[in-house]
């Protein structure tokens, strides 16, 4: 087996892969130099920020999500009056408590985005609150001792922010660097450009949905894909939000 390269973090190509529903709808020009889109403000306390915005939330238990297929099925016969149907969609939060799920559903109903794209992309789980966090005293780290995740109106999970003994490298398969022929491991500018071009092709493929764009893209990059797998470290996460306890009921 040949060895697989794992590239160190470059911090120049953050958004090209991570899910970002809004960028999928915005068009990116190939020829013009692409101005980086304004970064999405990170709602977390600054200690939890990473260059790519990635963070780790760990919880004991599983959240059962409606399968992506279900969402797509609903979407296929989408019309104006399917709001009812969406409300009937079940989100189960498997935390030994069924009412949690109902609460989550209620929360979703309140906050449910009207835009179709946003609805497709996400299902609301709950809200994170750092009760001791004060933006005016960011150096005081006592706030790390408590984090709440409210699910619906009646359920709350309590957790904390933990510094990881061994920081976690977030790794993924490396993206193709632009057209075949551009050398591997060139300067960061080149790879950034390549990522942008790729993203644009992706957008095309998504919007046409007839498969041709996707095929073309596969054809043009097949060489690289077949030759060897490449991985990269996207970012290094040093803290995690850990919910290690069961949810508890709270009164609205």
């Amino acid at each position: 087996m040949p060895s697989i390269p794992l590239y160190p973090p470059s911090h120049n190509q953050l958004d090209s892969c991570a899910s970002n529903p809004s960028s999928a709808s915005s068009s990116v020009s190939v020829s013009a130099p692409v101005a980086a889109p304004a970064p999405i403000p990170n709602p977390l306390p600054p200690l939890l920020h990473t260059p790519s915005g990635l963070a780790v939330i760990e919880m004991q238990g599983t959240i059962n999500m409606p399968s992506a297929e279900l969402v797509h099925d609903l979407d296929d016969d989408d019309d104006d009056d399917d709001d009812e149907r969406r409300d009937g969609e079940e989100m189960e939060v498997e935390m030994d408590d069924e009412s949690l799920a109902k609460g989550g559903q209620a929360a979703k109903h309140n906050k449910r985005p009207k835009s179709k794209a946003a609805y497709e992309a996400e299902t609301a789980i709950g809200r994170l609150v750092f009760p001791y966090y004060s933006p005016t005293e960011p150096t005081d780290n006592k706030w790390m001792k408590r984090v709440h995740l409210y699910v619906g109106r009646h359920q709350r999970m309590t957790g904390e922010v933990k510094k990881l003994v061994n920081p976690l490298a977030v790794i993924r398969r490396r993206q193709q660097q632009g057209p075949v022929g551009s050398g591997k491991g060139t300067a960061n500018e080149v790879s950034e450009k390549g990522a942008d071009v790729d993203m644009d092709v992706d957008v095309d493929a998504d919007t046409t949905r007839d498969g041709t764009a996707g095929e073309n893209r596969n054809g043009s990059t097949a060489k690289g894909d077949d030759e060897e797998e490449e991985l990269e470290i996207v970012d290094i996460v040093r803290y995690k939000i850990l919910f290690s306890q069961r949810p508890e009921p709270v009164s609205g």
Binding site: P43, A68, E122, T123, N166, A169
Partner: peptide
């Protein structure tokens, strides 16, 4: 203390976490 909405994205990506 502003609540930060937390949602599950259906377009899940493939990432692995590697302890350093």
């Amino acid at each position: 203390h502003p609540a930060i909405p937390f949602a599950f994205c259906h377009d899940q990506k493939n990432f692995r976490l590697l302890e350093l």
